[in-house]
């Protein structure tokens, strides 16, 4: 079997993911999360809650919902179908913490749960803080 034949066979059996469909699903599911949070936010605002507090409350509700869905085991099926639609919003951050905590619980509270809870979310915190630090320093130097 020569190289091009081999390539054809590989191509035949590689699952053909429909990129357009994936992008559409991500758009709709992300949008629905945006819509949902806008409704929760509006509910808080209409009850005379201050806007920064209302934002925090909305985030906490989303985090609680996604952690609970992760614990109940529904979230993985959502992620498989909608992918970035729920990974990019704050729900993905909460999901990564909860799923790592649950998966590694059996190795003990310290060496399992404690050590691996930040396995995925840690990189978000690390690179967020590093880039914020560097950019803040650049801004300060630019402004003199």
């Amino acid at each position: 079997m020569n190289k091009s034949e081999y390539k054809n066979i590989v191509k035949k059996y590689t699952p053909n993911e429909d990129k357009l469909k994936n992008a559409f699903y991500a758009f709709v599911s992300g949008g629905i999360i945006g819509l949902l949070s806008a409704s929760i936010y509006a509910l808080f605002i209409s009850n005379d809650v201050e806007s920064t507090i209302a934002t925090s409350c909305t985030l906490v509700i989303l985090i609680l919902a996604s952690s609970l869905l992760t614990g109940l085991g529904f979230f993985d099926t959502f992620v498989e179908k909608f992918k970035c639609g729920i990974i990019i919003p704050i729900t993905g951050f909460a999901h990564s913490l909860t799923s790592e905590a649950i998966d590694n619980k059996n190795d003990g509270m310290i060496t399992g749960l404690g050590a691996s809870i930040f396995k995925l979310a840690g990189s978000v915190l690390l690179y967020g803080m590093v880039s914020a630090f560097i950019l803040a320093i650049i801004k300060v130097i630019m402004n003199g």
Binding site: A26, G30, C84, P89
Partner: peptide, 8 residues
């Protein structure tokens, strides 16, 4: 939120 998710 939809567009940002779609870009991702």
């Amino acid at each position: 939120v939809g567009i940002i998710s779609m870009i991702g």
